[in-house]
Every structure is written in structure tokens, then in C-alpha cells.
Design a protein around this nucleic acid. Sequence first.
DNA 1: GCCGTATTTGACAACTCAGTACAGAACCGC
DNA 2: GCGGTTCTGTACTGAGTTGTCAAATACGGC
Lengths: 207, 207
Amino acid sequence: MARPRSFDHDHVLHAAERQFRAAGYNGTSVDDISAATGLGRGSLYATFDGKHGVLLQAMAGYFARLGQGAPRALAGPDEGALERLHGYLLRAVHGVPLAADVPPASDRTAATCFAAKMALEIGASDPEVQRLANDCFSVVRTAVAECVRAAQRNGDIDPDADPDDLAYLLLTVIRGSDVVGAYGHSPARLTSIAESAFAMLPRPRHP
Amino acid sequence: MARPRSFDHDHVLHAAERQFRAAGYNGTSVDDISAATGLGRGSLYATFDGKHGVLLQAMAGYFARLGQGAPRALAGPDEGALERLHGYLLRAVHGVPLAADVPPASDRTAATCFAAKMALEIGASDPEVQRLANDCFSVVRTAVAECVRAAQRNGDIDPDADPDDLAYLLLTVIRGSDVVGAYGHSPARLTSIAESAFAMLPRPRHP
DNA sequence: GCCGTATTTGACAACTCAGTACAGAACCGC
DNA sequence: GCGGTTCTGTACTGAGTTGTCAAATACGGC
């Protein structure tokens, strides 16, 4: 029985995420967030407790999207697991894929993992950000490891390989491609890196 | 025939690099640089043309160190090439190695590649920084590719593999480990990732 | 229609920042 | 010593920043 909010919570966080992506955390001012989201200064502080609060909630939203998207892109029957992994890897280097039918990001700033960018910029001095970023990493890594196990069950990956180690390695390649992309390399180069990584996966020995 | 400088050019750039590493570019003020280097504001502007100038020269210095260190750690006879590559990979995930006898960085902020951190923070909006960072990447990648070729000549790596593709992949893993490290993972985990990457290198087929 | 309540707006004060300017200090050559 | 030249430190300006507050506004319930 009072004035309702005139903005959509998630939409605002999404706009703030775009802003943080484009300019980094320390590179965006509260006014920038205000302009990007359309929210006034006062509402911003009342709802999100300022810049840092906006970041934490934006990262939490990103985490939630990953938690839904990564399993959706990777989980499934053992039979197509290796091919799902292949497709995921190829799409991941052009932007964190949320599902198989979501097109990859169009530009580089939207393609780099939000959590990785924030962790590298301020994670060392902001434990909360570091933890949230690692949560994002873990949820994807777990989904990849599960997909590796499925591929092993289907005889497409060496059963002696440790699926968790493999998942760590693949995710490290994907995150590394964020850096390589930041150096200005072409999407074709990133695709090539992803293909090389996939090609090096240990196949089962045929005796 | 005038007052000489009372500071060491390289020493100042090194201190500034540490500051940029610790707080990021947008997170450090000119006063921070002044405090970290001991230089006054006036000297800073006269010598380096302000914050951005300090960054560019610090990155140039970093590039110069890499250009000397990477070949020194990787070049050599074909016979030990694979083992040199192995050692380099293991050290690189704990900090950019400048030579085999230089101990790895003690803390994470000193371990992450300076160029990578700057490229990810401001590279998208600062072409000069992006180019300098990519130069740092290229000089190491070239040294790694050369080492891969040496290992191929020695019969330790599949001669059909493209050494440049392999170098891109290995460097992507190394840069990815910067991100994984920023998530807070232990050095042991990074070592494990490096070992996994090394283990996946394509060995020559023994018919 | 009217009131109470929550949201929004915009403005404000205190502060920090980048870049400049100027006066003083240090050194070299003579 | 002494002059000229370069370096150093500090103070200053204008712009930009953050966090807060009070008044204005919009809406649901009655």
C-alpha cells in the first residue's frame, strides 16, 4: 500500500554488469551506474547499498545464470557427452555460454567472464568478490567434470584420466582465452585454441 | 652541468609496477605512485608524463625483461628442450619466470602477469596498453614455440603437431592459471594444472 | 477522492583526484 | 666560490567522486 518500485531488479543488475564489464570496477563511478541503469543515486543506495553492493548482487545474478546455464549446456546422456563438451568449449572461448541456443556475445567486453574480470581486478583485496567469482568458476567446472565422466562412461575419453583434473585444465584454457582475447586476438584464433585443447583430450587406448 | 636525478629510473618503474599490480590501474592514484616510488608529483610528471606515462613505461620495462628472460629460460639444445618446457610451465603458473634461477614470486599479486592484468582491466579502452600487453604475450609465445620445435627435432613431441598452435595453447593455459590463481586456488592446484597440460602434449607415435 | 507509505529525485557538503605552476634546492663546470 | 641548469617538493585549481538528506511524487487501500 505504497508506491511500488518502478524498475526491474534483474534488469538493473544486468545493466550494471554491462557497465562494470566495460569500464571495470574502479573505472565506473556511481554516476556511471546511475546512467547505465536509469536509477537515481538515492534509489541506488537505498536498494543496493552503493557501488559495492551493486557489484555483489550483479555477481550473484551472474552466478545464478551460470548455475542454470552450464548444466543445461553440458548435462545429458553419456552418448553425446564428448560432442557437448566440444561444442561447449568452442562457444565458451567466445563468451560464457548459458545454453546451447543462446548466441555468443558479439563483442569482447561482453565475452569475457564477468567473474574472472572482477576477480583479477579487485579479487586480491576483496575476499567477498573473490569468493563469489570462485563460486562461478566452481559451478561451471563441476558441470564440465560431470560431462567428462559421462564421456568416459561412453568410452570417448581415457577412463584413467582424472575427470576433475581435466575439468580444471579445460576451464583454465577457457579462462586463459579471456586474457588472449583481451590482447586483441581474433575470434578465429580463440577457436583454434579451443580446438587444440579439445584435440589433446586423452582418448582411450585401443589395444 | 646541472642537478642530476636522485632516483633510479628502473627502480622507480619497478615500484610503480608493484603498485599497479596490487591495486590495478584505476585503483591507484598519482599520490599512490608517488608514495610507492618516493618521487614527488613534479618529478613524476616531468619524467614520465603522469600516471598513464608511468604505466606505459612500466609495461615497456616488463616487456624488456620478458624479452630477455623467456628465451634465456627456454632456448638451448634440442636434447633438453622438452624438460625445459616442462620446467618453464611449472614455474610459469606461479609467476612469469625470467630465468631458470630466479625464484618464483612469493605472493599472488606478484605472480600474475602484469601485462595480462592491465590488458584485462583497461586494454579494451586503451589500444596502447593492449598492444604492449600483446607484445609481452608474443615474445613469450615465440620462445615457447621455438622450444616446441626443438623438442620436435629431438623426437619428444609429435612432429605433426603445429608448434605455433601448441605454443598458443600452452600460453593460454599459463594465462588462465593467472585467473584461477585470482580465484584463490592454492599453488598446488596450479602446479597440478600445469602438469596436466604438460602430460597432454602430443607425443610422437611409436609404430 | 483522500491519506499514508514507500520510492524517487535532485541537490548538497566533504573529499579525492589529476594536472599545473612556482619557488627552492642540488649539482656541474669554470 | 659562483652561475646556470636541472631537479624536487609543495601548494593550488578545477573537475569528479561519494554518501546523505529532505522534499516531491506516485500508488494502493479505504
